[in-house]
């Protein structure tokens, strides 16, 4: 469907994309994952013909995006990072313009505009000025624009950034829905989002492809073992003694004692983390000590993400992510 071959992009002397190659197959939802400044937007801009490449080719269904721009662009719908909206217009007017520019006329134009308005659920604001719309609605109008002309591939650049939790959930549901009829590529720096929606993940760091696989396979690649965090009504020494009896526990690290209880972080090498937690529970009950809390922390894509992107340079600084999402989010974001 889309083939990207040896894509390289320099901004002056700055290397933004470095010899990137991958193939996008039809009928999947692809997540484009990477820290800020990794080259996600640059790559997407090149794939959609908004930017030239210093070297390399992008082909959409065999059409080169620069040589046969007209044919290639008809196969793509693109929502840039900032939705390209004309503020003085209403969504209905705006969508008619984009539809016309995509070559739709007359009845087909009307049908398509109605169709995308229905799909993105912007019917109630269709005659309000875009400048008066909330960010969530603007994003939807942007997505509606990308859907016009029924393109095979839809490329969305960080479609959930800056939205509130409910809007984020709605947009994610919309992306999932789109994935049924279209090939969708969307970028994000939020892992749980990509994990939840995509069936293929492209991880990109420093302009290079760091990983490209299904989420499940990526998790399997993880090197860091699973962890169990426990809080017990016992002294640290006692806990050590008790856990010496438990099977599958390879390492015990006590955390600083703040309350009368003790918290410890256990590591296991057993592939089924429940086997390890069962043995911990049984060891405590045998000794008659109370196990107050037990949290299982499975190795996740976050670890892989940090692992893959941290190696990319000494200038990466972990930073607290201020996501308002209700799901456990990436707590660590790597920013240039």
């Amino acid at each position: 469907m889309i083939s990207v071959e040896h894509l390289t992009k320099y901004y002056g002397d700055f290397l933004a994309v470095d010899d990137l190659s991958f193939e996008i197959e039809e009928g999947h939802v692809y997540g484009f994952l990477g820290p800020n400044g990794a080259g996600k937007s640059t790559t997407m801009n090149i794939m959609t013909g908004c930017l030239s490449a210093t070297e390399g080719h992008v082909r959409i269904d065999g059409y080169d995006i620069f040589e046969e721009a007209d044919k290639a662009k008809k196969l793509i719908g693109y929502l840039p990072e900032q939705p390209p909206l004309y503020m003085q217009e209403t969504p209905a007017e705006y969508l008619r313009f984009v539809g016309e520019a995509k070559g739709l006329r007359g009845l087909r134009l009307n049908e398509q505009v109605e169709e995308v308005i229905r799909q993105t659920k912007i019917g109630e604001v269709r005659n309000r000025r875009i400048s008066a719309l909330s960010k969530g609605y603007r994003q939807r109008v942007g997505i509606a624009q990308a859907l016009l002309g029924n393109p095979k591939v839809i490329i969305l650049d960080e479609p959930t950034v800056g939205l509130d939790p409910i809007q984020i959930i709605e947009i994610r549901a919309l992306i999932k829905e789109l994935g049924q009829d279209h090939t969708v590529i969307f970028s994000s720096h939020i892992l749980s989002e990509v994990q939840a929606i995509c069936d293929q993940i492209l991880m990109i760091a420093d302009g290079r492809l760091a990983a490209f696989d299904e989420p499940g396979n990526l998790e399997k690649r993880l090197l860091s073992p699973n962890e169990i965090i426990i809080t017990a009504d016992a002294e640290p020494e006692e806990i050590r003694d008790i856990l010496a009896l438990a099977a599958h526990i390879t390492d015990v690290a006590m955390e600083e004692k703040k309350s009368p209880f003790t918290t410890a972080c256990l590591k296991t090498d057993h592939e089924n983390i429940y086997e390890a937690s069962r043995s911990v529970f049984e060891a405590f009950s045998k000794k008659g000590k109370a196990l107050l809390e037990m949290n299982l922390r499975k190795a996740s894509l976050e670890d892989l993400f940090v692992e893959l992107t941290e190696g990319s340079g000494a200038d990466t600084v972990p930073e607290a992510e201020s996501e308002t999402d209700t799901e456990p989010e990436a707590k660590k974001e790597v920013r240039r």
Partner: peptide
């Protein structure tokens, strides 16, 4: 940033 739209249209 609406020029991005014009660039991406056919």
């Amino acid at each position: 940033k609406t020029d991005q739209l014009l660039y991406s249209l056919p």
